[in-house]
Design a protein around this nucleic acid. Sequence first.
DNA 1: AAACGTGCCAACCGCATCACC
DNA 2: TGGTGATGCGGTTGGCACGTT
Length: 420
Amino acid sequence: MLHSYFDGVMDVLSSFAVRLNNASCHEIVPVSFFPPSLCSTSVELLCTQLSAPGFRKAAAYYGPTPMGRSLCCDKVGLKKGPWTPEEDEKLLAHIEEHGHGSWRALPSKAGLQRCGKSCRLRWTNYLRPDIKRGKFSLQEEQTIIQLHALLGNRWSAIATHLSRRTDNEIKNYWNTHLKKRLAKMGIDPVTHKAASGAPVGTADDVRSAKAAASLSHMAQWESARLEAEGRLARESTMRAAASRPTSVPLHPINLPEPAASPCLGLLQPWQGAAKLDLESPTSTLTFIGNNNSVSLGISEGDPTTWRLRGDDPEREEDSARRFLRQQQMQGLEGAERGDEHIIGCGEEPWFQETVGVGAGLTDVLLAGSGVGAHGALECWGESGNGQAEHGGQVSGDGESSSSYWSGILGMVVSSEPPFL
DNA sequence: AAACGTGCCAACCGCATCACC
DNA sequence: TGGTGATGCGGTTGGCACGTT
């Protein structure tokens, strides 16, 4: 049995005359490849044969293992670990010239002894030219916390709200910094609830309850808004496509892959929605309470400005009216009292211009809770190194960092996970 | 100076989902 | 419609850097 098995292995390997150098036995054949009953001497003997010219790394192409599971290309024979500058250079040069195309095919084309998966990761998490690196700003931190409260560990969705940050970077930052800080403050970083017995929430239960209600409502609000937006976006796209010459792109042509809409990104995890075919870096929704006039729009900031706002006022108003009715039925006051709620990426220039520094999701989250302005916005002051991060309502009186976290605390305390 | 502990982050792994046939 | 390969995503790990003892 054993004999025939390894005969089979050798036959298969023989069919691949892959000549590669400098690979040790265990680099070309995974340990799991061998039956546990095989003694180490036999393994070494077999390895010696496998290491012979013509057999090296051929196991990478071998099919089912004795366990019946096919081997992934990156399990065997290919280089792992940190990337060298030379490899980076090769990968960059190849992608700049040809694009990445099929990641699986890329390594051989680029002359890299890596699997496609590794190349993709290296590109998306490190080499991509539009990646922002370095210290996270307070605003980015706040955005991450807010979105995490809404989305949970959906790092890719969160990353779409933090332009130029990768999901991996955000995930790492959360795990190494933010989670610990929340935990220190007595907040469960998973549920964003006050941990039992923690000092959090003892000051003002009513306020906490309102914050929870606000956050929960926020999720519902966003869901309804996105539903309307998604429909509008699809319709607008179709209209735009029908009326626009085909040579006029929606997106800058030099963008290889337009960034997915953050807000549309939110929609998917919440509603399990299918992919929408419209991308924009944000969307805005404005309610003006007195006359129930509503504008629902999707806009994209510079340099690629195209607006759907007002494309079809009747339809937009219909969507928003329905949403307003829904909110009224839920006893929501915020949408009716003239507040302007705009959700988006707080760090984006368009966002700053539209709603002012420091506003945005936080406002919405805190609207009606009594926490808002003093809870979170005023405390956006200084980062750890003392550098002013935001021009908004910085207290400037030394509260800065601590009050910032107090604001976060007020926001997330006792909140319920959305849509569960 | 050495040993040890901790923080950090790039990279890996496995599963889920998508796309294509 | 099911199968298969490609890709995306989130959890986890390995190893380096730095601080502490």
